[in-house]
Amino acid sequence: MVTEKVDFGLGLRPEHFEEIAANPGRVSWFEALSENYMVPGGSPLHWLDQIRRDYPMALHGVSLSIGSIDPLDTTYLDELKTLADRVQPMWISDHLCFTGLRGMNMHDLLPLPYTEEALNHVADRVMRVQDHLGRRLVLENVSSYVTYAASELNEWEFIAELAKRSDCEILLDVNNVYVSAFNHEFDARTFLRAMPKDRVRQFHLAGHEHRGTHIVDTHDHPIVPDVWELYAEAVRLFPNVPTMIERDANIPPYAELLEELDEARRIAEQVRRETAPKAVA
């Protein structure tokens, strides 16, 4: 099956490879985790190639470490480019964060201080990565739990300015906006409204774990009603942006993710009807 419209997609997870190949259901694209396919051969690349034959794909990385003070890892970038040559993705995304330094990887999406120094540093690196890959980079807002005393800007100001300076695009993770808004006590809608309209390339939706005093972005639960509400607002502000549901742990049966995707579709359709120009009687 080849779908033409890229609207509602799912994360490609090994638990679902066979089911996607046999009975994919209503899904128009997949997002593959780049590092999982930076391997020499075997089953992961077999399934990647097979599913790519039928569906458009985006590549989504976790280890670009765009904000790190370490030098850019050109070996990693070369491997990413090789993978991109194989997959021919619609776009390549990663996270606005750092994942380690001194050659180490903490395998976590660690937030950056929102300072002018960090902005200059990241913008320069984004431009160099874009030159290396020969395409624009799409960067995702991360969930965070701590606020740096040194921060001079809000997160949304930082992202908007970064997009302007480096010409990158934005993967707007609606759940992450919700999580960070709760943790840092800001208004999630203010964040959404600050995103430059022409730069939002993709939405992520996911679940989280609420611990009362703070929320942890676990990506291992269904999407909660408040995040669906925020998603509706995102669709109002940024119509026709491809949406994808991201589940990273506690992977449910594929059918459950398709049901969640139907809910995203229903909300987007409802927003579209609400905002469509009314016929004049």
């Binding site: 395998h107 976590d108 739990y145 701590v146 606020t147 005393a149 943790n183 840092h184 005093t213 703070h214």
Partner: peptide, 24 residues
């Protein structure tokens, strides 16, 4: 280098990262 929030202290919040690193 980080702040408490009105709801919780910074050490607990930093603990989310420290725990996640090892557990992952």
């Amino acid at each position: 280098a980080v702040r408490d929030t009105k709801k919780i202290d910074r050490v607990t919040l930093l603990g989310v990262y420290r725990d996640a690193y090892t557990l992952r």
